[in-house]
Design a protein around this nucleic acid. Structure first.
Lengths: 216, 216
DNA sequence: CGAAAAAAGGGTATATTTCCCCTTGTCCAA
DNA sequence: TTGGACAAGGGGAAATATACCCTTTTTTCG
């Protein structure tokens, strides 16, 4: 006995002002209702685990969140609830993250400066056709398949080393900090310089910051 | 003959989804109405210049915007329309920018992960008392007046040098790039190491990035 | 099991960075 | 007019970082 034919939407976003406001906007569309709102991926997943049979038509997932971010949440969904449809929302148009969200199953990726009209169109498109990609995203996908053959994978120890390299410690100090011989550190450095196509420790620091291995 | 006693609010934010949604939220409060929305500081200022007698009770100003950002807009308002009340909205809690917004006349500074209840409280507080500061902001103001005695001033050439130092160039290469003797570069470096209390070029790079002398 | 990769470490040589102390000339204010 | 601040440039030495070519041990996997 269905008394409510509206599509059920969940919002996951740490910006409470945005989250609550967006609910009003969605409500104003008429055909949708926001059944839950969560302020990070963790509480959302907790909810899903306790309500595995809840009827959910669409999830609006913010990318930048504390505790458990959009990407991690997306990965969890891919593994545990691939049936759920997700549109990722974000303020940034960083290539990497967009690609990752989509390869992890997001059905759409919208920037927050999207107009409400496009937003509605995207929601409807995902509900009907199963996906919605703007030109920005499509173009990005095409660019990537052409140039993303060589993906750089860093090992755990290399990442630890990089973090230390982004301080004023000398390699010798880093070695003793990591309980390794300076020569081993030397090896890490050489491998990384080669992998990342850089020539100096400065380059390493810039790489680390650009790829958010270290935060400033 | 005032037929509408509601407080008139203007929203300036490039995130259209947020902007339009927020309007609905504010409307739901009952006592307020959003009379205009703008997507950056420039179009907002254009509006003010053409409608100098418009009745405006409160402005909600986003900090991070393209074209003309929140801080620049705030500075313009300080010089041209100090009568207008502004609450700054932002996702980031970067000390510097908060201080600058407030010293340029913002009556409040709210993070976008504020709850709607606090948001409403802030609006009402600004309308009545003229200002609203969260603990975060108050604490920041206090910290600043205590620690901001020694402000570091960098000369133009030093800044140019720092930018070059944030690349994989050697000092020798930087010297020829800047048409100076390597020894002069050596001098800049030593002065900066001293001024910034750092010991290595890595420290210089980290400083530059943290203080946005170079962008990543 | 056995080969191949990966991890850890070594030797040596060169280049770069860091540090300390120095000279010269200019400009400006006491 | 003297003295101080400052910009530009420099010598030389020690510490660090980089490059290249090695060996040994451990892990991984067909």
């Amino acid at each position: 006995m269905k008394t409510n034919p509206k599509n059920k939407i969940i919002i996951v976003d740490d910006h409470l002002l945005f989250s609550q406001s967006l609910e009003l906007l969605i409500k104003s569309f008429g055909d949708y209702e926001v059944i839950e709102r969560f302020e990070n991926g963790k509480v959302f997943i907790d909810y899903l685990e306790e309500n595995s049979s809840a009827e959910i038509d669409l999830i609006l997932l913010d990318v930048n969140m504390p505790v458990l971010d959009g990407l991690s949440t997306m990965k969890w969904l891919k593994d545990n609830r691939p049936d759920l449809k997700v549109i990722a929302l974000s303020v940034n148009d960083d290539d990497e993250i967009i690609i990752k969200m989509i390869t992890n199953g997001a059905k759409g990726y919208l920037l927050k400066d999207t107009s409400p009209e496009i937003f509605r169109e995207a929601i409807e498109c995902v509900m009907e056709k199963g996906f919605y990609f703007t030109e920005l995203v499509s173009g990005m996908l095409i660019n990537k398949v052409n140039s993303d053959n060589k993906k750089i994978s860093l090992k755990e120890k290399e990442i630890v080393f990089i973090k230390h390299a982004c301080t004023e410690m000398t390699y010798k100090e880093i070695a003793s900090e990591m309980c390794l011989s300076p020569k081993t550190i030397d090896g890490y450095r050489e491998i990384l310089f080669d992998k990342l196509e850089i020539k100096t420790r400065i380059g390493l620091v810039l790489y680390a910051i650009k790829h958010k291995i270290v935060l400033v």
